[in-house]
Structures are given as C-alpha cells and as structure tokens.
C-alpha cells in the first residue's frame, strides 16, 4: 500500500500539494505511489524560481528507470523555490517523496483552485487502494 498522507491534496496525475508555514505558498512533489511506479529516479528537470504556471501546465520532467514523465502544476502560481538537493540526489524522491523529495514551492495565484484537488480518500480511490 502507498503512503497517502490525509492532510495533503492530490492530482489525478500523481502530484501532491502540501501547505507550508507561508501564506499561500505550497510545496509540490510526486506521491509515494508515483515514485513506486516510476522506479529509481535518476534525473529531474525543474523550472527556475520566478517561473509562472497555469493549473495543470507542465512544470518539469522526471526521469526514472521505467519512464520519463511530465510533471503537472496542481494549481496556478509562481515558483518561489526549487529543491536544489535533487540535482545531486534525485533518489530523495524515492526515499522521502513528501519530505526531502519535494520539488517546488509555489505561490498560489488563486486559492480557490486548491478546492478542486483530490482529497487523500479521493486519491486512494483513484489509484485503486
């Protein structure tokens, strides 16, 4: 069974959204289920801080043993921080997807979009768990 923290929100494309201490800033990464499906992650291509994305726009790519996949921005907003640790240690996504394996921090443009994300229960149903 995958780890699906109850306090986070999710996309059908397997990204998660985690609140931070800063108002309207969320942390984005891929779920435990997604990292398990991909296998060992070997490379992540992430945007620079300051880049803006619309909801479900592609914000980067991830390469793992089994596939290269696009990464989708769960809500519209501006990238305010990128996890530079992943340059040297992309496997952190496998070890700790919700912690050290986070990808970007996003200043949310429209907080109403957060309500359109999946709950943990919804996401568990989506992946059949």
């Amino acid at each position: 069974m995958s780890d699906i923290p109850a306090t986070l929100h999710y996309t059908e494309e397997h990204e998660y959204v985690k609140p931070t201490d800063e108002t309207n800033v969320v942390q984005v990464g891929i779920t435990d289920y997604a990292q398990g499906e991909l296998g060992d992650v070997v490379y992540v291509d992430l945007p620079k801080p300051g880049t803006k994305f619309g909801r479900m726009e592609v914000f980067g790519t991830i390469e793992a043993v089994k596939a290269v996949s696009e990464l989708f921005c769960p809500v519209s907003g501006e990238v305010v921080e990128v996890n530079e640790l992943l340059d040297q240690d992309p496997a952190a996504i496998n070890r700790d997807p919700y912690g050290d394996g986070w990808m970007i921090k996003l200043k949310v443009r429209n907080s109403g979009e957060l309500d359109q994300l999946l709950t943990a229960t919804d996401y568990a149903g989506h992946i059949g768990e």
Partner: peptide, 22 residues
C-alpha cells in the same frame, strides 16, 4: 539490465525506454 528488461542467460538482449506525455 534495468529491472523488468528482457534478458537471455542473464545478459541484456533488449534495451528499452519509455516516455509519457499527457
């Protein structure tokens, strides 16, 4: 060989890669 790839006599016969877009 990566896990899941096709081998014969423990040697890699087929090398594969996948991309997913939308």
């Amino acid at each position: 060989p990566a896990g899941g790839e096709v081998v014969v006599d423990a040697r890699k016969l087929i090398g594969s890669a996948q991309v997913r877009k939308a």
